[in-house]
Write a protein that binds this DNA or RNA. Structure first.
Length: 602
DNA sequence: GCCGTTTTCGGCCCGACTGTTTTCAGTCG
């Protein structure tokens, strides 16, 4: 089976970690950067390899001849000689071990050399036995931190982040749909509700020949084990370890089956209760009045039979959606494709992979009307912009902006929030920006009171427009900041600070329930990609909108659905300059009057 | 190992923080 981009990227990351382990200079970063590019590719690397070999792969940024050859080797043979040699030299689960917060490649080597630790389980045993504290530079606190990290990893074991599986599920769905004799096919389950973690995959299909669909499904290249396969149902385990179920149902039952397998369980129970109240019966085959089916072909039909409007999957969590539906108070949820702007984009000025121009072009091609460039600021030491470089970038953005028609590039920054809640860029420089994002990248462990105070102080800065990825969590890796979210939301309302839904699949931050609090409080939101490469610009539509919908948000709650000037008018800073472009036919005239001042918005 | 070019080598990987130290190694972004 040909490796996916995610699998190739994982192998490249493994190379990087092994090289890091022995302090090989520079190469680890090279492999990491290449992994990043492969992962973010919008077509299979294997396709590039088949079509153009080393040359095609090496044409990608950060992929040269050496890495291109190794990727090719991996695609053709399933292995890489260099990686195998490194694995033999240090036979450890380096990806698993370094997934533990606080454990890096150097420690993995030390753990193996001194204690013979190869796996996360080995490490857990050793930490419990008090062996880790015997290592140099490690003590009791190190041990506790490791155990905490392992517990955190385990607690989500079995479930995968949405971002790890949505593409795969869509891909399988598309292949089922394209199958001859299949009239309908859809994913169901928690992935259809876009929960942030997914336990297994469910598909519901209508087909002329159920057996043919079963044969196709159980023979998918992704399938590792077939647990069972009958006339209407197949259960398999995929190569990535997840279980996947397939149901084939009659067309008259498709809506009912989709509803039943989409859940949530509690939502289904509530629906069945409503059916009983009406003297009806609801199951996965339809709504029945005695023996007679009265609904089942579509989900809308099923809900209508229960005197309810259609309830979107993202709301089916038994958190008030039935009552709201009965009362006709379901929100008009925000739809994919309604965002006009993207306010968090990194470029190669800092840790992004692509240039300003490339990101702007790609965003425009995707149909956006404006973006803000928000590179990191300086206390993020590896690559952040200081005030001088930030001013240079502002100039570069202004120059680029005047060249692009019907598309605005705003100057912004992802400004670091210091430990005490001050910002790491001076106010007079912030004043030159169109959009100021503020974000936490350090001191994650402060107490709830300190952390909350820190964020509120930062939001009180008159230049701070958007609080980015407010809880700073990394799914499956880092816990969210300990925050009094009600206090944060109240402060956002008071200071006029916008809260962000960061759509990076590893973040999804704010999360759904916080979005709902914001919607209730009337705090405006934005949905941003946090893009570090062109391919990431799709994250808002793929993930950000889902989070917003799960948080009951309408388009009117999300201000980057607005045109650029209306959007800017909703930000907090008074006196922000008007950014409306001079219409083209007036431009020449305007440029002949260099003394003309831009007038401040009042 | 990749990139860029002042083009086949030299530069890239920096600083804060943590937990362990007493002068530092490792992790993280």
């Amino acid at each position: 089976m040909r490796p996916t981009n995610a699998e190739l990227a994982a192998r490249l990351r493994e190379m990087a970690l092994f090289l890091d382990m022995t302090s090989v200079p520079f190469k680890p970063r090279a492999y990491e950067k290449a992994a990043y590019v492969i992962e973010a590719l919008d077509r299979p690397a294997a396709e590039l390899w088949a079509a153009g070999g080393v040359k095609a792969l090496a044409a990608l940024p950060n992929v040269g001849k050496g890495i291109a050859e190794r990727i090719g080797e991996l695609i053709d043979t399933g292995q890489v000689a260099d990686l195998d040699a490194l694995r033999r030299a240090t036979p450890v689960d380096v990806l698993g071990l370094t997934a533990i917060e606080g454990v890096g490649p150097k420690m993995v080597k030390l753990l193996y050399d001194e204690l013979g630790i190869r796996t996360v389980d080995d490490l857990e045993r050793a930490a419990r036995a008090g062996q880790v504290r015997t290592l140099p530079h490690s003590g009791e606190k190190t041990e506790q931190k490791i155990l905490k990290g392992i517990a955190f990893l385990k607690q989500r074991a079995g479930r995968r982040p949405l971002g790890d599986v949505l593409e795969l599920a869509r891909d399988i769905e598309a292949r089922l749909r394209a199958l001859t004799g299949v009239s309908q096919a859809a994913m169901a389950g928690s992935i259809r509700r876009r929960k942030e973690t997914i336990g297994d995959l469910d598909f519901v299909v209508v087909a002329r020949d159920a057996e043919a669909v079963m044969r196709f499904f159980t023979a998918l290249p992704e399938v590792a084990v077939v647990h069972g396969s009958g006339h209407t149902k197949s259960m398999v385990q995929l190569a990535n370890g997840m279980d996947a179920d397939l149901r084939v149902v009659p067309a008259a039952s498709f809506g009912a089956a989709l509803n039943y397998f989409t859940g949530s369980k509690d939502h289904n129970v509530a629906l069945r209760r409503l059916a009983i109240e009406r003297g009806l019966k609801l199951n996965e085959y339809g709504v029945f009045d005695g023996e007679t089916a009265v609904a089942g072909r579509t989900e809308a039909e099923v809900y209508a039979a229960l005197d309810l409007p259609y309830i979107p999957p993202e709301l089916r969590e038994m958190s008030g959606e039935i009552e709201a539906a009965r009362a006709g108070r379901l929100p008009q949820l925000i739809e994919p494709g309604t965002l006009r702007g993207d306010l968090q984009i990194q470029t190669d000025w800092t840790d992004g992979a692509d240039s300003l121009e490339t990101m702007a072009q790609a965003a425009q091609r995707l149909g956006l009307e404006y973006i803000a460039i928000t590179d990191h600021t300086h206390s993020l030491a590896m690559m952040g912009l200081g005030e001088t470089r930030l001013r240079e970038q502002i100039a570069a953005i202004r120059a680029l902006d005047t060249r692009r028609r019907r598309f605005r590039v705003l100057a912004g920054a992802e400004v670091n929030i210091n430990k005490d809640g001050t910002l790491d860029i001076a106010d007079e420089v912030l004043a030159e920006l169109d959009v100021v994002g503020i974000a936490v990248h350090s001191h994650f462990g402060l107490s709830r009171a300190e952390q909350t105070r820190r964020l509120i102080r930062a939001m009180e800065n008159p230049h701070a427009d958007i609080l980015m990825h407010p809880t700073a969590r990394l799914l499956g890796k880092r816990e969210p900041l300990d925050l009094d979210m009600d206090a944060v939301i109240t402060a956002a309302k008071r200071t006029g600070t916008v809260l962000e839904i960061d759509a990076l699949p590893d973040r999804l931050d704010l999360k759904d329930e916080h979005v709902r609090l914001c919607v209730a409080a009337g705090v405006p939101l934005v949905i941003d990609s946090d893009a570090h490469a062109v391919a990431h610009l799709r994250f808002p539509d793929d993930y950000g909108i889902s989070v917003a919908r799960r948080g009951w948000a309408s388009a009117s709650d999300v201000i980057n659905t607005l045109p650029v000037d209306a959007f800017l008018a909703r930000l907090k800073r008074p006196g922000r300059r008007v950014t409306t472009k001079t219409p083209r036919h007036q431009r020449r005239k305007a440029t002949t009057k260099p003394t003309e001042k831009r007038h401040p918005r009042t």
